[in-house]
Computed example of a mutant assay.
Amino acid sequence: MRGEENISELCRREGIAASMYYGWSKEFLEAGKRRLAATRRELRPPAR
């Protein structure tokens, strides 16, 4: 995530396809966005 290592090299070393890595990364980031959005909704004061 920090860009300390080239993604292609990382995938080659770990034996996974780069497309698999990018799919996982996208899923992870989208799940984080959904969770943050839910947290913001929970923190809003109730409607009057």
Score class of each variant (00 low, 15 high):
Glu5Phe: 08
Ile16Ala: 02
Leu10Ser: 09
Glu5Gly: 03
Ala38Gly: 07
Ala18Ile: 10
Pro46Ile: 10
Ile16Leu: 03
Gly23Ala: 09
Arg40Asn: 05
Pro46Arg: 14
Ala37Asn: 03
Leu10Pro: 00
Arg41Asn: 08
Pro45Phe: 06
Glu30Gly: 01
Met1Gln: 09
Thr39Pro: 02
Thr39Cys: 06
Ala37Gln: 01
Gly32Pro: 01
Glu27Ala: 05
Tyr21Glu: 02
Leu29Ser: 01
Arg41Ile: 07
Leu29Glu: 07
Met1Arg: 06
Arg12Leu: 10
Tyr22Arg: 13
Gly3Ser: 04
Glu30Thr: 02
Arg34Thr: 03
Glu42Arg: 14
Pro45Ser: 14
Ser8Asn: 07
Gly15Gln: 04
Asn6Ile: 13
Ala18Gln: 14
Gly32Thr: 02
Pro46His: 12
Glu4Gly: 15
Glu27His: 03
Arg2Thr: 15
Tyr21Asp: 01
Lys26Ile: 02
Arg12Trp: 10
Glu27Trp: 01
Pro46Val: 10
Arg34Gly: 03
Ser8Thr: 11
Ser19Arg: 13
Ala17His: 13
Gly3Gln: 05
Glu4Asn: 15
Glu42His: 10
Tyr22Ser: 02
Tyr21Phe: 13
Gly32Val: 02
Met1Phe: 11
Glu5Val: 15
Gly23Asp: 12
Arg40Trp: 05
Gly15Asp: 00
Arg40Asp: 03
Ile16Cys: 06
Ala18Lys: 15
Arg13Gly: 02
Tyr21Leu: 00
Leu10Lys: 10
Glu14Ala: 10
Ser8Val: 11
Thr39Val: 08
Gly3Glu: 01
Tyr21His: 11
Glu14Lys: 12
Pro45Asp: 11
Gly3Arg: 05
Ile7Lys: 10
Gly32Ala: 02
Ser25Val: 05
Ile16Gln: 07
Ser25Ile: 06
Arg13Pro: 02
Tyr22Gln: 09
Glu42Leu: 12
Pro45Thr: 12
Arg40Cys: 04
Ala31Trp: 01
Leu43Trp: 04
Glu9Asp: 14
Asn6Phe: 12
Arg34His: 03
Phe28Tyr: 06
Ser25Asn: 08
Ala17Tyr: 07
Phe28Met: 04
Cys11His: 12
Tyr22Cys: 01
Trp24Thr: 13
Met1Asn: 06
Lys26Ser: 03
Ile7Cys: 07
Ile7His: 05
Glu14Ile: 10
Asn6Tyr: 10
Arg35Val: 00
Ser8Gln: 09
Glu42Met: 14
Arg40Phe: 08
Glu14Thr: 09
Ser19Lys: 14
Ala18Arg: 15
Ser19Thr: 11
Arg41Glu: 12
Tyr21Ser: 01
Arg41Val: 05
Glu42Ala: 15
Ser19Leu: 11
